[in-house]
């Protein structure tokens, strides 16, 4: 199996002494849709920064489609497209110029660059804005511009660092559709995101990084199997004054009056409804409280923080 990205023993210590990465190992298969998750300051952006050669590594090995960044950096870069977290284009340049100039940096002639730019600007709904200065675009358009710019040289691996930050729900979903289409067409995608529903909806494999270490690296399916409890929110026909006592279920009222019920894995929802029926409670709608991945993520990061605390106590 070819790996789009291989990382071995990657470390990074910044000049102020901060150890951002503590020897991480990571493999992303070709064609994968991969999420790198972690709290702020965990090391996500540093990892991706090293892969994209925006950050100098301290030690370790990184290769993109077999091109080691120490021995064949240009080969690695040719296979890579990057969408950074913050806007990093000249705000005064025109949209089309930004995209075709990027293609020029990859040695693509102006004629081909214009064709490729037209293709991606149209797909991302920016073709009508091609002659506008980038500063005139909305936040969502700027994000899409960075995606078009990253794709103009047709990379095999697309890295997106928080691609939908600050983007409204409708636009976010259209960007998901676009990225899924790119993935179906063979582009390997790695993304970091704070919207865990995004990772849950799109990604097949997930790594969780915290304090510069990979604390979990597995498939989404295996990760979700670890969920022992799911929380549902039920809206009842008649408002409840207090949470009922349901045999076998923990429940409480949330701040908006919805009934919040924890359902253990393996417990059928039928028994829940039978309990509700016994108490004469009629349910008119039902939804999950938070997405499942978010629950797991929070739990893992909390566990890791507790472990780190214990190690700290021992070392002290």
């Amino acid at each position: 199996m070819t790996h789009a990205l291989e990382i071995e023993g990657l470390t990074k210590t910044y000049s102020d002494g901060f150890r951002a990465l503590r020897g991480i190992n990571l493999n992303v298969r070709e064609g994968d849709f991969f999420a790198l998750l972690g709290p702020n300051g965990a090391g996500k952006s540093t990892t991706l920064g090293i892969v994209c050669s925006l950050v100098n590594k301290s030690d370790g090995r990184v290769s993109v489609f077999g091109h080691d960044i120490d021995t064949d950096l240009a080969g690695a870069k040719l296979n890579l497209g990057v969408v950074p977290q913050e806007f990093n284009f000249n705000q005064f340049e025109k949209v089309l110029d930004i995209v075709t100039t990027q293609a020029g940096y990859y040695g693509i002639s102006l004629k081909k660059a214009r064709q490729s730019a037209e293709k991606y600007l149209k797909k991302l709904g920016l073709w009508e804005k091609r002659d506008s200065p980038a500063r005139m675009l909305s936040g969502g358009m700027k994000r899409r511009l960075m995606i078009a710019r990253a794709l103009v040289h047709e990379p095999r691996l697309l890295i997106l660092d928080e691609p939908t930050a600050g983007v409204d729900i409708e636009l976010r979903r259209s960007m998901w559709d676009f990225l899924e289409e790119m993935n179906r067409q063979g582009t390997t995608i790695i993304l970091t995101t704070h919207y865990l529903e995004e990772a849950e909806a799109m990604c097949r494999n997930i790594a969780i990084i915290d304090h510069g270490e990979i604390i979990r690296h597995t498939s989404k399916r295996d990760l979700l199997k670890q969920l022992s409890v799911e929380t549902f929110l039920l809206d009842t026909e008649e408002p409840l004054e207090s949470a009922p006592s349901l045999d076998g279920f923990n429940c409480k009222l949330d701040s908006e009056g919805s009934l919040e019920v924890e359902v253990s894995k393996g417990t059928g929802l039928n028994s829940l409804f039978m309990e509700l029926e016994k108490q004469g409670i009629k349910v008119v709608s039902m939804r999950t409280k938070a997405n499942r991945l978010e629950e797991l993520f929070v739990r893992m990061v909390e566990d890791n923080a507790q472990d780190a605390g214990k190690v700290g106590e021992v070392m002290a």
Binding site: S53, L54, V82, P84, N88, F89, Q102, Y105, Y106, G107
Partner: peptide, 8 residues
């Protein structure tokens, strides 16, 4: 960064 990520 546009230049730095490219193979130039």
């Amino acid at each position: 960064e546009e230049l730095l990520v490219s193979p130039v």
